[in-house]
């Protein structure tokens, strides 16, 4: 029943013309071992996290936005506005860097929705959804992969900042705490995009929606300028904007002046975002066809 592989002149087997032989051994398609117990929640989620890592390795170009955006924004804001806003780029950088950190990581959350949306269209999720696994596992696992993206974006902003002369008052612990808080918040915020990824029809629509939502949220905050020069109505928005709270805490952590209350606010906001959008995401996931 076996057929010898046909040697191809080019070297390796020519995979487009290689003939399909009869089954090598029809019996071996049957699993001889009894059906194993289904994986637990952690095991299933970790498998999906592994899948996300494999995909990053296979298509590294999907990381280009995560790499380019933080670098471009940090350089652009520092040298474009530094002189006008703070007298010198170097002076502005002390104020700006926590803001660009927040912006770079939050902008990276949109790819969570874009990637999920693209994944859902390919049918591989049909298979996942007919498996007896903890149903949120594919999304939780994907978020673990996204956490890696957020860490990479954070590291780039932080590293570039240090290179340009940024000196955190809080030292390395302050820097790491700031990055940890931003990544935690970004993961919570990602549930907004997992929901959008499920209910919005195309990846392009998610991108445009993300730009409309993320740019006002990050720009109309205290990330780049002190809000006291803004008109009253905008100041009111800045005050209730959750990004403002995140930037305040991030800045305080990096300056070494952070209070437990500030950390608490970020964690509470993250918990609230997750509590609202994770269940909505899972409901949309169950009803997705």
């Amino acid at each position: 029943m076996t057929t010898a592989p046909i040697p191809s002149p080019a070297g390796g087997p020519d995979i487009t013309t290689q003939p399909a032989a009869a089954l090598h051994d029809p019996g071996s398609v049957l699993a001889r071992k009894p059906r194993p117990a289904p994986p637990g929640r952690v095991s299933a989620s970790l498998t999906f996290a592994w899948r996300a890592l494999l995909k990053i390795r296979r298509i590294p170009e999907q990381m280009s936005d995560v790499i380019a955006v933080p670098i471009v924004f940090t350089l652009l804001f520092t040298y474009l506005f530094g002189g006008a806003l703070a007298g010198s780029p170097h002076g502005y950088l002390q104020f700006l860097l926590p803001g660009t950190l927040v912006m770079a990581v939050l902008l990276a959350t949109m790819y969570t929705g874009v990637n999920l949306n693209a994944d859902l269209g390919k049918g591989v999720y049909d298979r996942f959804r007919t498996l007896r696994i903890w149903q949120p596992a594919p999304i939780v696992g994907a978020l673990v992969g996204d956490a890696l993206r957020y860490l990479l974006a954070s590291a780039l902003v932080g590293g570039l900042g240090l290179l340009l002369g940024y000196r955190p008052g809080g030292g390395a612990p302050g820097m790491l705490l700031a990055i940890a808080l931003v990544v935690v918040f970004a993961l919570a915020f990602s549930w907004v995009f997992t929901l959008l990824g499920l209910v919005v029809r195309s990846s392009n629509a998610i991108m445009s929606l993300a730009v409309v939502v993320l740019f006002p949220l990050t720009l109309a905050s205290n990330a780049f300028v002190d809000p006291h020069t803004m008109p009253g109505w905008l100041r009111a928005f800045v005050r209730v904007n959750p990004v403002t709270g995140l930037v305040t805490t991030t800045r305080a952590a990096m300056d070494g002046t952070v209070t437990p209350g500030q950390v608490g606010i970020v964690l509470a906001a993250s918990a609230a975002l997750t509590a609202i959008f994770a269940p909505l995401t899972m409901r949309a996931y169950r009803n997705h066809r």
């Binding site: 494999l54 995909k55 390919k122 591989v124 049909d126 498996l131 007896r132």
Partner: peptide, 19 residues
């Protein structure tokens, strides 16, 4: 219903773990 970006072995190993 496959991951186009991954190899056959990766596809099958992911699914083998998931069952």
């Amino acid at each position: 219903c496959l991951d186009e970006d991954l190899t056959a072995r990766e596809n099958l190993r992911i699914l083998a773990r998931l069952v």
